[in-house]
Design a protein around this nucleic acid. Structure first.
Length: 669
RNA sequence: GCGGCUGUAGCUCAGCGGAUAGAGCACCAGCCUCCGGAGCUGGGGGUCGCUGGUUCGAUUCCAGCCAGCCGCGCCA
């Protein structure tokens, strides 16, 4: 990304500091630099005078008068003016700015430490639903943005292959369906054949089966003994039940990876819970927890015989009462949080132990990049790259796990790693839920209790089989997009039409999952999710396609020497345009130039809805410009070049923004 | 009970100390001799949950209240 404003921002801040020195430079607040709400006001502004007014006991405008000359003297500054209550508005040299923006991409400066991002983490016992999609899309956008900012990133998708959920799937297959190991194998093979023939895979089959198992338990609680027996068999990690569990988890995982690949989402490592146990990571962590007094054995009370961690109810309050969080049960087994603490220590390279690794054989990305999984001790491949050892860890998990993430963080701190605790970041977001109307529309047979009917929305639930499967949503989008494509491009051959429909569908889902602020509950609306008009992914894709159509036509008209006319555009002089027209042109350039700021802000706040909003508004501006200022018909070559330059700058920023969101842009649509 | 999040246009949502509170959808009226209309232009529509406080200035920060949701398990 080309950052037009970075040096100027620093220079303006320094000029303000020099012109109005703070009494105490150490505690001086950062000099605020912002973009004016209307670019007609200026390209960059500082409200610094407003903030200084109180400290200096002088009217803000008077202070601004003093700041203005210092800023006006900076290189690249074309003009400075004072406006409103005391803003100092700065205008930059436009011709130079456009030249820079059309110039070569700077090489990213490699960051010092690695960031491990964990996302997706779907229990391998049923198909992925749209809630999982939100997680994966947020996580993947974070990964892309960090990389664009020059950070080293490692993407992990944690697989809980030993838990209750897998056990229940196994109970469904072995007890309800009465299958043995060979029987399950045959089921999986049959599901693969269906999948290869264009149908759905084993994950769909288990979606229904898992719901049935839950109902079966509910009808007779004593049946839960099957779950316990299966769970223990899985933990022993040998014998037919364990092998069935492993087959099921691996097959469902493969389905999930395929679903995510439809959306362009990839991973580098699949750490398995079974390997965290197998490599005795927990034992190592437990030793440290005991040694540091982080956990203590309870002698009496409700948690007698358990190892617990004392935690305050609130983060800040010193005097708030503490309560006990059980880490190890009285039967000696470790809870979920305990395993998470061990895993987090490993991510930071603090455990003094590593996994074994091997390529995840059932799934390949096709471009040679290897997806690694952890392997049982001694079963890794020699020379496999090591993973983890992060400087920072970002876990993408929904808000309901906030409390457990806090426990993990607190454990790191008490183990003597306050820095790592600080750099353990929970990227929390609200869930995706269904409005009762949408739920009923999608599942006509659904029976809702009166209580549910009154609720604003319903949680998706694998147990109840209530939810929208990720692949179903994608399929519906592709079908709808294909209709549109055929209508608009009847001459397009079938494979090309399908590929185009796929791209539109991906753009639509990814945008839909990003457009809401992360703490907003997405009350899933099927019509809004299927929309291609208004604030949607396809709207932005279309704006980019329009620009490339102009470039295609221009290439035809001007002949093959594309580099030459691009160079001429880069040298376009805005002084040739009438003032009002120039303002419109410049406004679009200015908006495009704010991309790096949008990416930085979104990444720092983990609020990618702002990036989505940015891309959409840029697309809107391109569309408006497109209608107002024709390029090909423009007789004055100087004017045409200026318009072309504006579109090239805007298009570059839009494509980059869409790329960071994982929204692909077709060559036509 | 304790902790957290959320109340902004008919609906779905942005904005979260400053320059006239915005977008999309829906509704109404226009725009195809013009680089493709998945588009553009315009219009109507708001006590920014309520009450106080801080501030030159509050939709934005703080407190209280009201409403809704999510956590707080020897589940994961």
């Amino acid at each position: 990304m080309i950052d037009l404003f970075s040096t100027l921002r620093d220079a303006v801040a320094a000029a303000v500091r020099a012109a109005a020195p703070a009494a105490d430079p150490a505690s001086a607040p950062a000099i605020p630099i912002e973009f004016p709400p209307d670019p007609a006001l200026g390209d960059l502004a500082t409200p610094a005078a407003l903030g200084l007014a109180r400290a200096l006991k002088r009217p803000p405008r008077q202070i601004a008068e003093q700041l203005a000359p210092a800023i006006a003297a900076l290189p690249g500054v074309a003009a400075v003016e004072i406006a409103g209550p005391g803003y100092v508005n700065v205008r930059i040299d436009r011709t130079a700015a456009v030249r820079t923006l059309l110039g070569p991409e700077p090489l990213p400066v490699p960051g010092a430490g690695k960031t491990v991002v964990e996302h997706t983490n779907i229990n391998p016992n049923k198909a992925a639903h749209i809630g999982h999609l939100r997680n994966a899309v947020l996580g993947d956008t974070l990964v892309r943005s960090l990389a664009a900012l020059g950070e080293r990133v490692e993407v992990q998708n944690y697989i809980d292959d030993t838990g209750v959920q897998v056990a229940d799937a196994v109970v469904g297959l072995t007890v309800l369906e009465g299958l043995d190991e060979a029987g399950v194998r045959a089921r999986i093979d049959a599901a693969r054949d269906r999948s290869a023939a264009g149908g759905h895979g084993f994950d769909y089959e288990l979606w229904d089966l898992y719901a049935r198992v839950t109902q079966w338990y509910e009808a007779d609680r004593s049946r839960e003994s099957h779950r316990q027996a299966t769970l223990h068999a899985l933990e022993r990690r040998e014998g037919p039940t364990a092998r069935i569990g492993s087959m099921v988890a691996t097959e469902i995982l493969t389905c999930h990876l395929r679903t995510m690949q439809r959306l362009g989402i990839r991973y580098q490592l699949l750490p398995r819970e079974s390997d965290i146990l197998g490599h005795r990571f927990w034992e190592t962590a437990f030793g440290r927890l005991k040694q540091t007094g982080t956990v203590a054995l309870q002698a009496e009370g409700k948690a007698a015989g358990c190892w617990v961690m004392n935690l305050p109810h609130a983060d800040d309050q010193e005097d708030s009462a503490e309560y006990e969080k059980i880490i190890v049960r009285s039967d000696g087994t470790v809870t979920y949080v305990g395993k998470d603490i061990a895993y987090q220590l490993w991510k930071f390279g603090l455990l003094g132990a590593d996994f074994d690794y091997r390529p995840f054989a059932p799934f390949q990305y096709g471009d040679g990049s290897v997806l690694w999984e952890t392997a049982p001790a001694g079963e890794g491949v020699p020379g496999a790259p090591s993973h983890g050892g992060a400087a920072r860890v970002i876990n993408v998990i929904d808000v309901r796990q906030a409390y457990l993430q806090r426990v993990v963080k607190a454990a790191l701190e008490r183990l003597g790693y306050p820095g790592e605790a600080e750099r353990s970041i929970h990227f929390s977001y609200e869930m995706v839920a269904l409005s009762p109307e949408t739920a009923l529309a999608l599942q006509p047979g659904l029976v809702l209790s009166d209580e549910d009917r009154k609720r604003p929305w319903l949680d998706m639930s694998g147990r109840k089989g209530l939810g929208v499967k990720a692949d179903d949503l994608l399929d519906r989008l592709e079908t709808k997009a294909l209709e549109e494509v055929r209508q608009r491009n009847p001459e397009l051959p079938e494979p090309a039409a399908r590929e185009l429909a796929r791209i539109v569908a991906v753009g639509a889902v990814r945008y839909y999952m990003l457009r809401f602020a992360r703490k907003t509950i997405v009350a899933f609306d099927i019509d809004a999710a299927l929309a291609f008009e208004g604030e949607t992914g396809p709207y932005s894709q279309y704006a980019a396609v329009r620009v490339s159509r102009i470039l295609d036509k221009l290439a035809e008209k001007l002949g093959g020497d594309e580099a030459a006319w691009r160079a001429r555009a880069a040298a376009a002089r805005f002084e040739r345009l009438p003032a009002e027209v120039a303002a419109d042109h410049w406004a679009l350039v200015h908006r495009a130039a704010r991309l790096p700021e949008a990416v930085r802000q979104a990444t720092a706040s983990l609020e990618f809805s702002t990036l989505a909003k940015y891309a959409f508004e840029l697309a809107q501006a391109i569309n408006a410009f497109y209608h107002r200022y024709p390029v090909l018909q423009e007789p004055d070559e100087a004017v045409r070049d200026a318009r072309l330059a504006v579109l090239l700058v805007a298009d570059r920023a839009l494509r980059r923004a869409l790329d960071l969101m994982g929204v692909p842009v077709p060559s036509r649509m």
